[in-house]
Design a protein around this nucleic acid. Structure first.
Lengths: 206, 206
DNA sequence: TAGATTGTTAATCGATTAACAATC
DNA sequence: TAGATTGTTAATCGATTAACAATC
């Protein structure tokens, strides 16, 4: 199963499993079945078993999955067992809001640098981070071994920022700007655009 | 084609088409082919034609799609030709950032009310909106004909907020809290969780 | 043991892509 | 007309779900 390519749908469900498993652990629940998980997460139990089986045999027949063990395994799969440094460009409202998520990201993922091109933003303090000028981006990212870049600039600036990220060696990008960016194929880009999200939601209004 | 149920994947692509079509219109481009669109948006042209064909015959054989006409049609499909009022609960960093998106949402969608349960937040000014207490939620939403609710409170509060939204008659919910909420089947819920987004991105790191 | 639940194969369902007649 | 491009059908591909032997 190791070299099988995993579909994005599967990968997107893993953090959802993880989130609920952490909840269970906080309640000192020892064991959970795919049935329990499916019921709670509105997913088919067979799908959950299949998702997990791509990566190994984590359950016990007749028993279910050990909560702590499954958490550990999913964290490994998602590479959340390593420290991952993140940088963010665009210290506007959204950028500042996301920078404050550091608390939620726990200690394994961390926004370690924030950049902006506007002189009035540079030098501003966001929690314990100082907004840096774009001219320091490549150097700072390399020095801090940043692996994920977040873009929260206007659409017109997003491609430029993406190019800088690529130059600096970032491996993945989360783009909040409402535009499709071009990067080399080996760099993974995910999109998180609030506006398109709301617009697709409008479709389902009566 | 009218009564066919459209897959979510299709609906999610429509705002992407719209976004790029608006760009084209600003550049005074009159006509676009599915090939052009596909190239720009990294999608298969056949898929784009099929997506659009679910809703009608918008193109001209040998020519392509009229940009202005297609914009109009997609806006109709997404119900963006009506005014849609939105309410937001949770005036933290993220909530305040999203409230500032009003400018981007153009004049057809608008956040018309912001609520919070914390006394220190209530009465705060966000642009031209005053943060209101939760006790005024149902009444305000009904008075303003709010149809979409946004949740930006901590996970522990999200279900309660969802319940209030349901009570007030909201038709769809965009939930930024990292938890699955339970609502009646006729209410559409979309999720936008920054943390799970980053975690699934981590999977693709080398 | 009897009941429960996994891991996995097979069946189903749905979405994407290719192909092409129609036609601008 | 010749070239381009749609709308749509058929083919392919992939993801979800059902079913069940294995086994705790």
């Amino acid at each position: 199963m190791k070299t099988m390519k995993i579909s994005e749908a599967v990968v997107r469900r893993l953090p959802i499993y993880l989130r609920y498993l952490n909840e269970l652990r906080m309640k000192d629940v020892q064991t959970v079945s795919s049935q329990d998980l499916g019921h709670k997460l509105d997913l088919n139990p067979a799908q959950i078993r299949k998702d997990l089986a791509y990566f190994g045999e984590f359950g016990k027949k007749g028993i279910g999955y050990d909560v702590g063990y499954l958490i550990e395994k999913i964290r490994q799969i998602l590479k959340l067992d390593q420290y991952i440094n993140v940088a963010l460009v665009g210290a506007g409202n959204l950028g500042r809001a996301l920078s404050n998520y550091n608390a939620y990201l726990k200690d394994n993922m961390k926004i370690v640098a924030v950049f902006d091109s506007m002189p009035d933003k540079i030098g501003q303090q966001i929690n314990n981070l100082t907004v840096k000028p774009m001219s320091e981006l490549v150097e700072t990212i390399q020095a801090n071994k940043v692996r994920i870049g977040i873009i929260t600039v206007p659409a017109s600036e997003a491609q430029k920022v993406a190019d800088d990220f690529v130059k600096s060696g970032v491996e993945a990008i989360l783009n909040f700007a409402p535009i499709i960016i071009r990067v080399p194929a080996e760099i993974r880009v995910h999109y998180a655009d609030f506006t398109t999200e709301l617009q697709s939601l409008a479709y389902y209004l009566d």
